[in-house]
Design a protein around this nucleic acid. Structure first.
Length: 417
RNA sequence: GGAGGAGUGCCCGAGUGGCUAAAGGGGACGGACUGUAAAUCCGUUGGCUAUGCCUACGUUGGUUCGAAUCCAACCUCCUCCA
């Protein structure tokens, strides 16, 4: 482990963000000299980013914190083309309106973590649709395609493996590195950006941009990737029962987000504290040293700090307090996710089945029935076995709500309005 | 353009005329054990106004009392040859 001179690489390497770098010495020197500009691209396939993207988002955060200028690139141009790697046939073609909506949702996340503006280290937001949509095929081939050597392209591991195994590789996929390489060049020309970061799966795409900039502009640009994260038990990051761990509050409440981190596996606690919180390393070391049940305290810190990063300190504390009441006191915690139902429904008597479905705890009536059979369903903390049970105003607690629970961890409050 | 192969539930994958809402595995969810962890064990895993009904094995038609299974056309994907 060589010592880095630049603050950025020091922080990044200590906290476990580093996977590969194209020219460590050169990049270190560049970053040590003064403000550098770097970008990371994000797809616009969903209305929010999820926990899987958080690693690279945090890299942008640290980049700015250590005195540099980050660029968040919205890939709405490449999203329109569609990422060719999936196996599903008939991929959904997203309409322009949806892509724009998604883009708006994704922007919000960056606005929380980065400081935007016109200053030398203020973050920028760009969109590759601005230049990709204008491309003319023949011009592109002449201007960009000429700088790509097929001989080299087929040497790339991603390509080589496919060819060696005689697996199909479409021309579209083969071209992807040109598009992303072109992004890098375009951003370099517009902003002087000389560093592109991303997940480790982006490595070869990033390198193609590095090459292109060298050929086209005679400038050395850099590549840096972060490891692809899995939990210690091998699960992909950012997936839960109800889907992805979204970063936007509209997609996933801060309380549920807090819970996601609270349920981190023991073996991941230290790694996640380094990656997803900004606590000092000594503090993390101390927390990670906790053993047995004590590590639960570290998980709470992880949850609160990680939640504070993207939902704000206040929401994080509230989530922590709600969880404390719900789990440690078994009390009726007011901060639990709350669903409003028309008062009239309760007056008429609301079926327990539909109550759990509207609360989002179960996917269908049959799902509720199965869970009732499995003994997972509770109303106001009392087990319920009768699927015909209906909820009425008399079920309201002193706080004026009805608490629905599925299993031990999932609770929703029903509130009449 | 030619020859061959494939398309099954969230995913992988068995099934080649009725016993198939479809084996098995993974994942997920619930339960037990714990520490709101992991591992392990057990259960569940299409929908409904439910002793029945509907939807589902690429699409559309056909054969049949009856089709995921047979036939035809089409769509998509893959491999090899040109």
């Amino acid at each position: 482990m060589s010592e880095y001179k630049s603050e950025f690489l020091k922080v990044i390497s200590e906290r476990g963000f580093l996977h590969q770098m194209s020219d460590p010495e050169g990049l270190d020197k560049l970053c040590a000299e003064g403000p550098v500009t770097a970008y990371i691209g994000f797809d616009c396939t969903a209305p929010s980013l999820h926990a899987g993207s958080l690693v690279t988002i945090m890299m942008l955060y640290w980049f700015q914190q250590t005195g540099h200028r980050p660029i968040a690139l919205m890939g709405s141009g490449t999203t329109r083309v569609g990422d060719p790697t999936g196996k599903d046939e008939s991929r959904k073609i997203l309409s322009d309106e949806i892509i724009e909506e998604n883009k708006a949702g994704i922007r919000k996340i960056f606005e929380k973590l980065l400081t935007f503006g016109d200053g030398p280290t203020d973050a920028l937001m760009m969109d590759n649709a601005d230049w990709l949509m204008k491309l003319n095929y023949v011009d592109f081939l002449r201007e960009i395609g000429r700088h790509f050597s097929v001989n080299q392209m087929i040497q790339r591991d991603s390509v080589k493996l496919r060819l060696e195994r005689e697996q199909h590789l479409s021309f579209l996929e083969f071209n992807y590195m040109l598009l992303q390489g072109y992004d890098y060049l375009e951003i370099y020309q517009q902003t002087g950006c000389r560093l592109q970061m991303g997940g480790s799966d982006q490595w070869s795409n990033i390198l193609s941009g590095v090459d292109l900039i060298r050929r086209k502009a005679g400038v050395e640009a850099y590549a840096l990737t972060a490891p692809l994260l899995t939990t210690s038990s091998g699960a992909k990051m950012g997936k839960t029962a109800s889907g992805a761990v979204w970063l936007n509050a509209e997609q996933l409440s801060p309380y549920d987000y807090w819970q996601y981190w609270r349920n981190t596996e023991d073996a991941d606690v230290e790694r996640f504290l380094k990656l997803f919180t900004i606590l000092p390393l000594e503090e993390i070391k101390r927390l990670a040293a906790l053993e047995g049940a004590g590590i639960n305290d570290a998980k709470k810190v992880l949850a609160t700090e990680a939640t504070a990063m993207i939902h704000g300190r206040e929401a994080a504390e509230a989530a922590a307090e709600t969880a404390r009441q719900a789990f440690e006191e078994g009390a009726m915690a007011e901060g639990l996710p709350t669903i409003e139902v028309p008062k009239a429904d309760l007056e008429a008597g609301m079926g327990i089945l539909s109550a759990f479905v509207t609360a989002g705890l179960c996917g269908s009536n049959g799902d509720v029935r199965r869970n009732i059979k499995g003994g997972a369903v509770k109303i106001n903390d009392k087990g319920e076995q009768n699927e015909k049970r209906s909820l009425t105003l008399s079920d309201l607690t002193d706080d004026g709500v009805i608490k629905l629970s599925l299993g031990k961890k999932k609770h929703v409050l029903l509130k009449p309005v």
